[in-house]
């Protein structure tokens, strides 16, 4: 009927488990975005969706199509590589931007910028 009919039982169990686990982790990550109290704690939540969710769901897809051999699975590998390489950069930049804005607005509870040390003489 469809391509999924040809999947052996063990592969089907693995794919089901990985897909459900991955989406549950992504859901918990977004729930953290909703429920955590301030920005700096919320900054930790999306990492859950990217490191857990993306890897598990891509692995499910790799297992499914590697067993079926109906299409190449390189795109999933590329998605995993790109997401793992790019997410830390985004979150780091957002954290720095938030810190900068909070310092400009002089909010409480944000660590102050340390005074810059004097320039070394040999520069």
């Amino acid at each position: 009927m469809s391509h999924l009919t040809d999947l052996p039982t063990w592969a089907a169990i693995v794919v089901c488990g990985l897909v459900l686990l991955g989406s549950a982790i992504a859901l918990i990550g977004s729930l953290g975005l909703l429920r955590l109290p301030d920005f700096y704690t919320r900054l930790h939540a999306p990492t859950l969706a990217t490191s857990g969710g993306v890897i598990l769901i891509c692995t499910a897809s790799i297992v499914c199509f590697a067993v079926l051999q109906s299409r190449w699975v390189f795109h999933e590998v590329l998605i995993i590589v790109f997401v793992i390489m790019t997410t830390p950069v985004t979150l780091m930049l957002l954290g720095q931007a938030a810190l900068y804005r909070d310092r400009v607005e002089e909010r409480r509870g944000v660590p102050l910028k340390q005074k810059p040390l004097p320039e070394p003489a040999d520069e």
């Binding site: 794919v15 897909v19 991955g22 989406s23 992504a26 990550g29 977004s30 975005l33 920005f39 919320r42 900054l43 939540a45 999306p46 969706a49 990217t50 969710g53 993306v54 769901i57 891509c58 499910a60 897809s61 499914c64 999933e76 998605i79 997401v83 997410t87 985004t90 957002l94 931007a97 938030a98 804005r101």
Partner: peptide
């Protein structure tokens, strides 16, 4: 910054949704 964080998470979740449609 909260809005941008939300947008970023929305992108990731949309990508996962596309992957599940792909499977």
């Amino acid at each position: 910054q909260d809005r941008i964080l939300g947008l970023d998470t929305l992108y990731i979740n949309a990508m996962l949704m596309l992957l599940s449609f792909g499977i």
